[in-house]
Nucleic acid binder design. Structure first.
Lengths: 209, 209
DNA sequence: ACAAATTATTCAAACGTTTGTTTAATTTCA
DNA sequence: TGAAATTAAACAAACGTTTGAATAATTTGT
């Protein structure tokens, strides 16, 4: 689906508001107001509020579809290097789109059948297959240990990053980081998370510290 | 706050519906219907839908307040044993109240000031202080390594468990576990998570596999 | 190239529902 | 009998969506 500039501005406004107030907590009038268009335009362009939500998902995910698949093709890197790049990609993707990631979490929690949760499930399944291949590659080359629960491992990755996004306020208050600007804090947490995760995954995958 | 039986049945109904449909996605009429009472009873007993939400939180958290504090007092266990018990407590608490935990997540994501998110933040801060003490105890006894980011560590714990609750459908489909009953699956995942987390935390805290 | 016809966009207003809450009347029970 | 509990009904406000008219942009026929 190709979207016009006006449609994209509606999608952007919706993304912003959905992530702050949730889907049900955001009215189409709020969205229209935020985007600076008439309320009717939402029905006109997208058909319904629900369909708009799906358009938001569509627009935000279409760029990052083939990242993992491409990683698999590379023959020059060791599998551990690939995993590290994967970790950096995940952290970057999540932290640079915290609002969108919040929507994804909300949709998964509510998990309304036929809604966005189904689309997310499909995305996850496709990613899972690729990552499983990646881990298998590492095991065959003797880089990784046996008996790795890929879902549990990926849940750890996604879970930690999600928590750091959700508990942003908590982390800042506990570590006395309130003096940092949003931008400075983002960089701080990005670095911190990447280092932590690389080390954690090294242990998970190889049993070595 | 002490609640009568009728009040508790309203709270239970609200907990169920909030976790399935979210706060905004649940109407007071839905709640009244689920609890088998008149709509007006909600205003009558709790004042407002918002206050009812706080009552849900109050009721569900009041029992598990002092768990961590008690662990700290014990002198017979090693700190690693204490950590393992803490892990079991968390897994048990979260997995046996998945609905409630979902509400907590929803509220933290939306993070409306003055709402339940503030109560959760307070709970987290109190827990954090205790757990920090626990880790420090382990470090002083030489059981744990230095330089442990407690928030990052706890985010890992909470994050993994949350993901396993949120992505329940995903995990079952990927691992072909659809033939298990809800109860069987719960036990399966409980065991799996506990083993995984104990091992993970051993590595995080001691650098050993 | 230009007027005519067609299509796409935008808008204010109104649609019928549903929302959370309140009211006033009635029932319950000690 | 009197306070507490419960009810149906009503409330204004907000909800997502539709309407029909007005304007802008594009396509068509000559």
């Amino acid at each position: 689906m190709e979207f016009s500039e006006k449609q994209l501005s509606i999608i952007a406004a919706a993304e912003r508001l959905f992530s702050v107030n949730g889907f049900e907590g955001t009215s189409v009038r709020d969205i229209a107001n935020e985007a600076g268009v008439n309320v009717a335009m939402i029905s006109y362009y997208f058909g319904s509020k629900e369909k708009l939500m799906e358009a938001v998902f569509e627009e935000k995910t279409k760029k990052m579809r083939l990242k993992v698949e491409n990683l698999l093709q590379d023959t020059k890197m060791t599998t551990r290097e690939k995993v590290n790049i994967l970790l950096e990609d995940y952290v970057e993707k999540f932290l640079s789109n915290p609002q969108f990631h919040k929507i994804m979490l909300l949709e998964q929690i509510v998990d309304k059948p036929g809604g966005v949760a189904d689309l997310i499930l499909g995305l996850k399944k496709r990613n899972h297959i690729s990552i499983k291949k990646l881990i298998l590659e590492g095991q065959k080359k003797g880089e990784f240990k046996k008996n790795i629960d890929v879902v549990l491992m990926m849940s750890t990755l996604v879970g930690v990053v999600s928590q750091m996004i959700i508990a942003r306020r908590f982390y800042r208050e506990v570590n006395n980081l309130e003096h940092l600007s949003e931008e400075e804090y983002n960089n701080y947490i990005r670095k911190k998370l990447t280092v932590y995760l690389k080390n954690l995954f090294k242990m998970i995958l190889t049993n070595e510290a």
